[in-house]
């Protein structure tokens, strides 16, 4: 995605409609932070620092802004737990935006290392949700 003015305008519209306070996008060579100037109660979760990340691990990221859910509200058990073996495309958790539950999926097969996001936390586009140690499928 190129970050041009129409894109920013579209993103701002989405933030407004979904009641989300802010969004941060980082692409190669460019970054964008949009903050709504209306007061919104919750502050967005800051992107976790990259310092502690094991080079071999891959990160499952949110691709939409909203509140993270580690488990479906009808289920006590979270989608994944540390140490669990998962396949590429497995659901790691949900991002709740209004009445939508959008899945966060594993980019590769592996062992779940850490689920970074906490249930209820606001995540943004590209926010890391979980770290996975890849294993050959």
């Amino acid at each position: 995605m190129t970050i041009d003015l129409p894109t920013i305008e579209r993103l701002a519209g989405m933030l407004e409609r979904s009641g989300v306070a802010a969004i941060e996008i980082e692409e190669a060579g460019q970054s964008l932070k949009l903050v709504m100037d209306r007061p919104i109660a919750a502050a967005p979760a800051r992107a976790a620092s990259a310092s502690a990340v094991d080079d071999a691990s891959v990160t499952a990221k949110a691709d939409i802004a909203g509140h993270f859910l580690a488990a479906h509200p009808w289920r006590a058990k979270p989608f994944v737990e540390p140490g669990q073996r998962i396949e590429a495309g497995a659901i790691i958790g949900l991002v709740k935006v209004g009445l939508i539950y959008a899945p966060v999926v594993a980019p590769a097969a592996g062992i779940v290392d850490t689920v970074i996001a906490e249930t209820g936390a606001l995540v943004g586009y590209g926010s890391p949700v979980a770290r996975i140690r890849p294993v050959a499928a």
Binding site: P73, L94, I100, P103
Partner: peptide
């Protein structure tokens, strides 16, 4: 793509 919605029983 996969997508869920909040069950009516919750809303």
């Amino acid at each position: 793509r996969d997508l869920g919605i909040e069950p009516a029983e919750i809303t």
